[in-house]
C-alpha cells in the first residue's frame, strides 16, 4: 500500500525533471537555437547565403553594432544604460577623419588615438554624473546624446569630411589574414570583453554592482569606480566603432550613428542580458548581434521589404524578454 504511491511519485518526479531541464535548456539557449533556425532557413531559401563572400559581408556589417553592443553589455550589466553612443560615435569618427583628411594627413595611428581619447572623455563625463552626482543614467546619457551630437555639428560645421588617407581607410576596408579589419576588431573586442567579464576580478565586480548595489558596497567594492569605468569603456568602444564606421563609409558624416544605441541595446537584450543588471554576458550578446545582422542580410537577399524586417526585430526583442522572464520564474 505504501510503496505504490511512492513509486508513482518517483516516476512523475523524474518525468517532470526531464521536462523541466528541457525547458531550462530552451530558456538558456533559446536564442542560440533561434540563431541556428535563422541560419538554416536562410541557407534553404537563398542560394547565395552560405557563401564565404556573403558571410564575410554579414560579419562586416555587424561589426559596428557588435563593438557597440559589447560595450553596452558592460553598461547594462551594472543596471545602467547609455543612449549617447550614436552621438559619441559620430563625434569621434569626425575627430579621427579631420586628422587624416586633406592634402597633409596626420598618421592614422594618431587619428585613431585622438578619437579613442575623445570617446573616453565623453564616456567619462557621463560616468562622473552617474556615479558621483548620482543622476539616473537614462537622463545623463539622454543629455549627452544631444550635447555630443551638437559638438559634432560644431566641429564639422554640419559638413561631411571625406578624402581620407588610405592608411586610415584600411581600418574599414582592409583585410587581415583575409578577414576584414573591422571584423577582426569586433572579434578581438568581444573576446577581450568575454575574458574580462568571465575570468577577472573586475568582471565579477561588474556583475556584483549590477546584481545588488547595496550588497556590493557591503562587500567593500568601489561601486562608484566600477560604474564610472563602464561608461568610460563604453565611450572608448563607441570611438572604436566611430573610426571603423568612418573608414568603412570613407567619410565622416555629422548625422552618422543616429539611433545606433537602439540596435546595440536590442542586441544585448536579445542576448538575454537583464536590463536590471547582474545577469548576462558577452557570448549571448554576440549571438544577439548576429541575429540582427542576419535578419537584415537575409531579408535583403530574399528581397523582402524592410518594413517586415523592423516588425521581426521588434518581435525578437519581446520574445527575448519573455524567455528571460520564463528563466527567472523557473529559478524562483
Amino acid at each position: 500500500m505504501m510503496s505504490t504511491p511512492t513509486k508513482q511519485m518517483g516516476r512523475a518526479g523524474a518525468r517532470s525533471r526531464t521536462l523541466g531541464s528541457l525547458g531550462q535548456l530552451f530558456a538558456r539557449y533559446g536564442i542560440v537555437i533561434a540563431l541556428g533556425l535563422i541560419v538554416l532557413a536562410l541557407s534553404v531559401l537563398s542560394d547565395n547565403f552560405l557563401t564565404s563572400g556573403n558571410l564575410t559581408n554579414v560579419l562586416r556589417q555587424v561589426s559596428i553594432n557588435g563593438i557597440l553592443a559589447v560595450g553596452m553589455t558592460f553598461v547594462i550589466l551594472t543596471g545602467g544604460i547609455d543612449l549617447s553612443i550614436g552621438s559619441v560615435l559620430a563625434l569621434t569618427g569626425m575627430v579621427g577623419a579631420s586628422l587624416v583628411a586633406g592634402s597633409k594627413p596626420h598618421s592614422p595611428i594618431l587619428a585613431i588615438l585622438a578619437a579613442l581619447a575623445v570617446g573616453v572623455v565623453a564616456g567619462a563625463c557621463s560616468g562622473i554624473f552617474i556615479a558621483w552626482v548620482r543622476l539616473p543614467a537614462f537622463v545623463v546619457t539622454l543629455g549627452m546624446l544631444s550635447a555630443v551630437r551638437g559638438l559634432t555639428l560644431i566641429y564639422s560645421q554640419g559638413m561631411p569630411i571625406s578624402n581620407l588617407s588610405s592608411g586610415f581607410k584600411f581600418l574599414g576596408q582592409g583585410t587581415f589574414l583575409g578577414i576584414p579589419v573591422s571584423v577582426v576588431l569586433f572579434g578581438a573586442t568581444a573576446l577581450a570583453a568575454w575574458v574580462v567579464l568571465a575570468y577577472t576580478v573586475y568582471g565579477r565586480r561588474v556583475y556584483a554592482v549590477g546584481g545588488n548595489m547595496r550588497s556590493a558596497h557591503t562587500c567593500g567594492i568601489n561601486v562608484r569606480g566600477i560604474i564610472f569605468s563602464v561608461y568610460a569603456l563604453m565611450g572608448l568602444l563607441s570611438a572604436l566603432a566611430g573610426v571603423t564606421l568612418t573608414a568603412r563609409t570613407t567619410a565622416a558624416l555629422p548625422q552618422a550613428g543616429v539611433a545606433y544605441e537602439l540596435d546595440a541595446i536590442a542586441a544585448v537584450v536579445i542576448g538575454g542580458t537583464s536590463l536590471t543588471g547582474g545577469i548576462g554576458g558577452i557570448p549571448l550578446t554576440v549571438v544577439g548581434v548576429l541575429i540582427i545582422g542576419l535578419l537584415n542580410n537575409g531579408l535583403d537577399l530574399l528581397g523582402i521589404s524592410s518594413y517586415y524586417q523592423q516588425v521581426i526585430k521588434g518581435l525578437m526583442i519581446v520574445a527575448a524578454v519573455l524567455i528571460d522572464k520564463a528563466r527567472h520564474a523557473d529559478a524562483a
Binding site: 556584483a208 546584481g211 545588488n212 547595496r214 556590493a216 557591503t218 567594492i221 547582474g278
Partner: peptide, 15 residues
Amino acid sequence: SGLFLSQSVRKNISL
C-alpha cells in the same frame, strides 16, 4: 544588502 540573489553560491561566497 548582503546577497546577490541571481548569482551562484560560488560567486556569492568568493566575492
